[in-house]
Amino acid sequence: MSRYGWIAASLVLANLASGVAVIYATYDTRQQFGALQRLENTNQQLSTEYSQLLLEKSAWAASGRVEQKARAELGMIELDANAIKILGNRK
């Protein structure tokens, strides 16, 4: 084969290879993007759950509820001056 023949053949091969690479890159992008979408969906679901749990937690831990439970069920009281003794010399 002549010199030009070789050049032409290698250019054809290179062209083919780059074509295949383009196909692969496109395919890979789609795969990755699909994975990203799945992760984002998971993220969405988890954050939904998180905010629901957060709201649930603050409903259970609402100050009014805690106070009422502390007083009624645990019998806790606020200490007045008579029930407090300062230990040691503060000055």
Partner: peptide, 30 residues
Amino acid sequence: EAALQLLNVAPDQALSDGAAFVASELEVAL
């Protein structure tokens, strides 16, 4: 008063020594 207690600020009124923390008193209160 309650806010300073919640913030753990030490009382600055002179608390009489006689008014000691008595466990039995607390039990009565319960």
